[in-house]
Simulated scan of single mutants.
Amino acid sequence: MISTTSLFAPVDDDLRLLTNNLKQLVGARHPILGAAAEHLFDAGGKRIRPAIVLLVSRATMLEREITPRHRRLAEITEMIHTASLVHDDVVDEAELRRNVPTVNSLFDNRIAVLAGDFLFAQSSWYLANLDNLEVVKLLSEVIRDFAEGEILQGINRFDTTLTLEAYLEKSYYKTASLIANSAKAAAVLSDSPREMIDHLYDYGRDLGLAFQIVDDILDFTTPTEVLGKPSGSDLISGNITAPALFAMEEQPYLETLIEREFSEEGDIEKALLLVEESQGITRSRELAAHHAQLALKHLDCLAPSPSAQVLKDLVDYVLSRLY
């Protein structure tokens, strides 16, 4: 598997700067929020989202140096992403993320909700200070999409009538919206041609969908120690993702198990086995590969450059997580 460290070489220095800046941006005005933020930004995330913003910035600026606004956009993107993770963990009552205790388990739910709110608010403030209305609109939409994605996921728990379209829409809100809109915003800050701006949005959307589908596959195929949370935990909590959706078409009994919310002894084990024995994982892999291919095509608008090449390699990286 490709490691992100070697992958992001063209923006390595940018990402180092970003990590230092993030801790300052969150500010030490509130020691507990400071502690929460330090903990979050140190938790070994791959920084994929801000890296994409920086890569798009460099790939669209080419001969020119990227601006402080591009850098700030990358920081805002990571803040929004982190805020969404904090809220996610509260909603999911998660104890661990990347094998590190979550903010809600270290402090408590109340502080975690407020820390997430604070990060959203802080990112909005820095966003407004970019003084670019289009970029403000793009990233405000992301914050709204996150909430909508969480609400949809909550409403659709254990709902076996969920369609593939509805699943993809939810995946867009939860994952792809941030990647798509921040990539687009970076191109807007570079004054790129409109057509290129739109292609970079589409690249982010399809890459984000592939990324989420791969995550949903890994939830079934990765052992607990590696995943940092129990295997199949999405399904157990009633969150029906691509592998289970496809599996239900072949294994109607899976629907019964989900509809009774795994209330009987051995239901969870049976359900996981049904997914494993079906074509669910294979078909989900094909779906992820389909979106990855679409993402690649949208990069044809960029002139060759080291950063443009990494945006292409990133598509392979997302799929390589499966093998």
Score class of each variant (00 low, 15 high):
Thr102Asn: 00
His199Gln: 12
Gly45Thr: 00
Ala112Trp: 15
Ala28Thr: 06
Thr161Ala: 08
Pro10Thr: 04
Asp219Tyr: 00
Ala247Tyr: 01
Gly27Lys: 14
Phe262Tyr: 12
Met248Leu: 13
Arg49Leu: 10
Thr4Glu: 02
Leu119His: 09
Gly34Asn: 15
Tyr126Thr: 04
Ile52Trp: 01
Ile143Gln: 05
Ala94Asp: 04
Tyr201Phe: 08
Asn239Cys: 15
Ala9Arg: 11
Ile240Ala: 13
Met79Arg: 05
Arg283Pro: 11
Ile236Ala: 13
Ala51Asp: 03
Ala185Cys: 11
Leu18Asp: 08
Asp215Cys: 10
Leu96Ser: 02
Asp88Met: 01
Asp219Cys: 02
Lys270Gly: 04
Arg97Val: 00
Ala121Gln: 10
Leu119Cys: 02
Pro10Trp: 07
Pro304Ser: 12
Asp89Met: 09
Leu299Trp: 07
Ile52Gly: 05
Phe158Glu: 03
Val11Ser: 03
Gly154Phe: 15
Ala303Ser: 07
Thr256His: 12
Ser84Trp: 00
Glu38Gln: 05
Asp216Gly: 07
Arg98Ala: 00
Leu200Met: 06
Leu73Cys: 06
Ala186Val: 08
Gln309Pro: 03
Ser284Asp: 11
Leu106Ile: 14
Leu319Ile: 05
Leu22Met: 09
Ala271Asp: 06
Thr77Ile: 08
Thr221Ile: 14
Ser231Arg: 12
His70Asp: 13
Val56Asn: 09
Ala180His: 09
Ala210Trp: 01
Val275Ala: 15
Gln279Lys: 14
Asp13Tyr: 12
Asn99Leu: 02
Leu7Ala: 05
Met79Ser: 04
Leu272Phe: 04
Tyr201Lys: 11
Gln212Arg: 11
Pro10Lys: 03
Thr282Glu: 14
Leu287Ile: 14
Pro101Met: 04
Arg16Ser: 14
His30Pro: 00
Ser57Cys: 11
Val188Leu: 09
Gly238Thr: 06
Val315Ser: 05
Pro31His: 13
Thr256Phe: 11
Phe211Gln: 00
Arg69Trp: 07
Leu54Gln: 09
Ile258Tyr: 01
Val318Phe: 03
Arg260Asp: 14
Ala288Gly: 07
Thr60Lys: 11
Ser284His: 13
Ala51Glu: 01
Glu276Asn: 13
Ile2Glu: 13
